[in-house]
Design a protein around this nucleic acid. Sequence first.
RNA 1: GGCGAGGUAGCUCAGCUGGUUAGAGCGCAGGAUUCAUAAUCCUGAGGUCGAGAGUUCAAGUCUCUCUCUCGCUACCA
Length: 687
Amino acid sequence: MSASHKRTLVTSALPYANGPIHIGHIAGAYLPADLFVRYLRSRKRDVVWVCGSDEHGAAITLRARKEGTTPRAIVDRYHVEMQEAFAGLDIAFDHYDRTSSAEHHAFAQQFFLELLEKGAFTEETRQQFYDPVERQFLADRYIQGTCPKCGYESAYGDQCESCGTALSPDDLIGPTSTLSGATPERRDTTLWYLPMDRHEDWLREYLDKGIFQGADHHDPKAWKAHVLGQCRSWIEGGLQSRAMTRDLDWGVPVPVEGAEGKVLYVWLDAPLGYITATRHWAEKKGVDWKPYWMDPETQLVHFIGKDNIVFHCIIFPILLKEHGGYLLPHNVPANEFMNLEGDKISTSRNWAVWAKEYIEDFPGRSDEMRYVLASIMPEQKDAEFTWEDFQARVNNELADVLGNFVNRVFVLTGKFHGGKAPGASGRWTEVDRALLDLVASTPGAVGDAIERYRFRDALQHAMGLVRAGNKYLTEEEPWKVVKTDPERAADILHLALQVTANAAIVLSPFLPRTAQRLAMALGTSELPWDAAGSALVAEGQPLGDLPILFEKITDEQVAHQQAKLGPDQEGMRDVEAEKEQTTFDDFQAMDLRVAEVLAAEKVKGADKLLQLTVRTGYDERTVVSGIAEHFSPDDVVGRKVVLLANLAPRKIRGVVSQGMVLMASTEDGGLRFITPEEGVEAGDVIR
RNA sequence: GGCGAGGUAGCUCAGCUGGUUAGAGCGCAGGAUUCAUAAUCCUGAGGUCGAGAGUUCAAGUCUCUCUCUCGCUACCA
């Protein structure tokens, strides 16, 4: 694919500036892009790789509030931290940007306005409440007032929690803003939606056939099955309109009069960050950014994790097409997920290998992690990282196969040729020719696999050359031959040195540090890809010192890393932010009682719902509870539970639920009942 | 519930448009060897390709049913 294009623009998913980087991120969207880009650079191709921090959105404002700081402080911190993490693993972007920059805001706003002018959005204007103190529009549930039906004083703008009536904010008597307590004003507001259903036809053609605007665009067979599958699933399900603005104060302000307190939806804002980043990069370089996004001879590749497929394959292409002039992605080689030691990676449970901690624990050993992650990259299904596997791969493959091979060659050259590369007689045996053929064909095989985004395969090919080198030395036995036929021994070592140099080239995307050390020891600072396949080490070339390439990973190191997984023993948990202060009256308004579950059955057509019949001591009632994934009906019958008894009845999946069973949600994502002590009976009031 | 992707040797995974005795690496067993980081090389054992049915001269590879895992999505007050 890339061979047919003049230049390549590569993007990696913008990491959300809300937490540190772990190996799942690296293996998903950053290492594969880094391998791809290093390969293209080594081939002297015109390639640019951009990325940056995604710094907007509600989660960041929430985190800021929880930590008692500002969103700006949060994103500044992670912007620095994430770059350190990437640098530690030699993830080498051409440019790493951030979406909170003034230039990005300006660009995103301009892009939005241009789409607006072209009629890409549908507008819906309606009256909405506006908080004059906070200067922003209020979502329905940020408004409180008296319920017109039951007189409850703290009814929300969408529903009265007391009588259950569905309300609109206009119905409330004496509405106030829950943010400031001020009396909200009615103002006209406009919401912008992206009507995606308009785009189904051309998207289908683009994704299924690789045809865009009547012309061949890309080879759909080159896309991964799970990527296309997910897209088709969405399109066949019918695309819905999606709001492109949000009621938030942290983000890119909607550049329209009267839209105060609204920002662009992060999924409009973030991918445009790729373009801003490219512009910044071009500015820095003093070149024109436009060809990278607009010239049909450029190929655009988005590296992402599988959770981002729909945005990159459907929503962003729609935006780009509606704007016009921009390229659409030629491939989106999304990876699946990386699991860790038998469980999903989880930030909140500290079940992760953090890039930053890895580098602190294994300084200077980024190549080892890169190698292991490339070996087990989740290219077409979820993969599994274990520390024992890490140890095995580093020790058996990097240290024993690669490190030892290189060491053999250097030691032999030192002993028999005074540390200078021997020349060749040119009288090749059949075995030599077979090895020369492999040397010649390996760069192509590795490159081909990389261009097809088959990085594990590419690495196998590259290591195959090293394995062949070991076999060659063992079978040709230059240390014996040298006693009877020194010229033949020189030929053998000459060839082994060529294998070493070629291996350095084909491994360079995966092991940049090691490749660099090898190149230096072989007397060059650069080993360009297109030089591979031939003799690279000239006769008489003195070899430099080359200490051990890879130290072995010890059992103690493995145990230490395994022990670090999981929640800190003494540390505080990373839980959701505490809610705003409430009043005793509000608490008193809740009628909590002990109840006993008499019967339970699954609600048909719903995975998570159980329909419970509970005895309160003064009545029997039906409660629908979203616990079916954690408990079977048999598990719950006979249990005493805590019931919120006076909760407004609500219809869920056709069943009227009269109350709510209280549950604790545990750190591992599970649920547990709040079970009363022995001696407590159904109907007992909790206060 | 709807949809998508997976379920292949003890482990981690390949197997691209259906075609001879199903592959790699690691691990295991046996052997060779010593230039080398107890490294390397060779040989071997080990798989009813999740289960069942179908299409075909021929299926891990296509179709259907079932089952398990992961993801998206709806219902989780």
